[in-house]
Simulated assay, not measured.
Amino acid sequence: MITVVRADTPLILAFPHGGTDLAGLDDRFVSPWRARHDADWHIAALYDGLVEATTIATAVSRSVIDVNRDPSGASLYPGQATTELCPTTTFDGDPLLAGAAPDAAEIARRREAYFDPYHAALTAEIARLRDRHGRVVVHDCHSIRSRIPRLFDGALPVFNIGTNGGTTCDPALRDAVAGVCAASGRSHVVDGRFRGGWTTRHHGAPARGVHAIQMELAICAYLPEPDLPTGADWPPAYDPIHAAPLRTTLASILQACLEFAR
């Protein structure tokens, strides 16, 4: 369920939410479509070939277990609407499960099967690259619909840079990435609604040469996004022409990450 493609550059691209595999639990959900509704659609295709980097991805849907949540179950965004380690609702607040929520034993089973291997792979790749380079950048790749009233007001900026208040990476990296976003002419914010999830907060350790940054993209920047997605129009097909302008900016962002690490 975990795919690692190794490179020797000091950059790791992490894909925690691109998977749609329901791990044989299809009947536990209201519908398979709803269980896959909040995936980071086509995120791997969006980043494919932009730069030489190690990639780590899980095939498991975030509806089975969200590998970017605190495994203790504590909220990463206290006081704000969010979804759980093993979600019970969609982002919109619609019921996700056909029956009862998974109990503690089931959550522990899913964590051991899917969550722990993902972060073990990420830890191993960070260690491998730290042995070769003085600094390593973990670029955590995400996307989300641009309008979800339950989670945020209005339209989300295109580029949402998360560093958990500057704790997960050197300010020079944050500023370099923000500078590329600003130069693109598209909207961006640093540590706004999405300040970085478990990946950046857990693995980011600037004092030890590990600099983690989350990039949450408004999905409308590379996919045609309907106002209210339905089974007929969601997910939309990936269109390389539609995605090309955003890919150009992402390539510059990743190059900035490499230049910082080097």
Rank of each mutant, 00 (worst) to 15 (best):
D38P: 05
R130P: 06
G49I: 12
L129S: 04
E112I: 00
T90D: 08
D94W: 01
F91N: 13
R128W: 09
T123R: 14
R111D: 01
V64K: 02
E84V: 04
P78C: 02
L96K: 02
R111W: 00
V60G: 00
L76Y: 02
R130V: 06
A57C: 07
R130K: 15
E84M: 08
A105V: 13
D92T: 14
T123E: 14
P71F: 10
A53T: 09
A53R: 13
A45G: 00
F91G: 04
T90M: 08
I126E: 03
A98N: 12
L96D: 02
Q80N: 06
A121P: 06
E112M: 11
R69C: 07
F115L: 04
L50M: 13
A57G: 11
V67T: 11
G73D: 07
D116Q: 14
R62W: 00
A100S: 15
T89L: 04
R128F: 06
D66E: 06
E125L: 06
Y77N: 12
A44V: 14
E52P: 04
D48E: 15
A53K: 11
D70M: 13
D48F: 00
G99K: 12
A101G: 11
A57R: 15
D103P: 10
R62N: 03
S75G: 02
R128N: 04
T89I: 10
I65T: 06
E112A: 15
H42S: 02
T89V: 15
C86H: 00
A98Y: 05
F91S: 10
T54H: 13
R109T: 11
N68P: 03
A101L: 09
A121W: 09
A121L: 08
T88E: 14
S72F: 07
P78K: 05
T83W: 13
W41C: 09
L122H: 08
A98W: 09
R130C: 04
A81C: 08
Y118G: 01
F91M: 11
G79P: 03
E106D: 13
A81S: 13
E52I: 07
A124L: 11
L85K: 08
S72C: 09
I126C: 10
Q80M: 12
Y77R: 15
H37W: 08
H37T: 01
W41A: 13
A121N: 09
N68E: 07
T54V: 10
A120L: 12
I126K: 04
A113I: 03
L129E: 07
D116I: 09
G79H: 10
R109Y: 05
L96N: 01
I43K: 04
A59G: 14
A39N: 09
T88W: 05
E112T: 11
A108P: 05
T123H: 12
E125M: 05
I126H: 06
S72N: 05
L76Q: 11
T55Q: 11
R110D: 00
P102G: 08
P102D: 08
V67Y: 06
P87W: 02
V51I: 15
A98F: 09
T55S: 15
R110I: 03
C86V: 12
D94S: 00
D66G: 04
D94Y: 01
D103F: 13
E52L: 11
L97R: 15
I56W: 03
D116E: 15
G99D: 14
T58E: 09
Y77L: 11
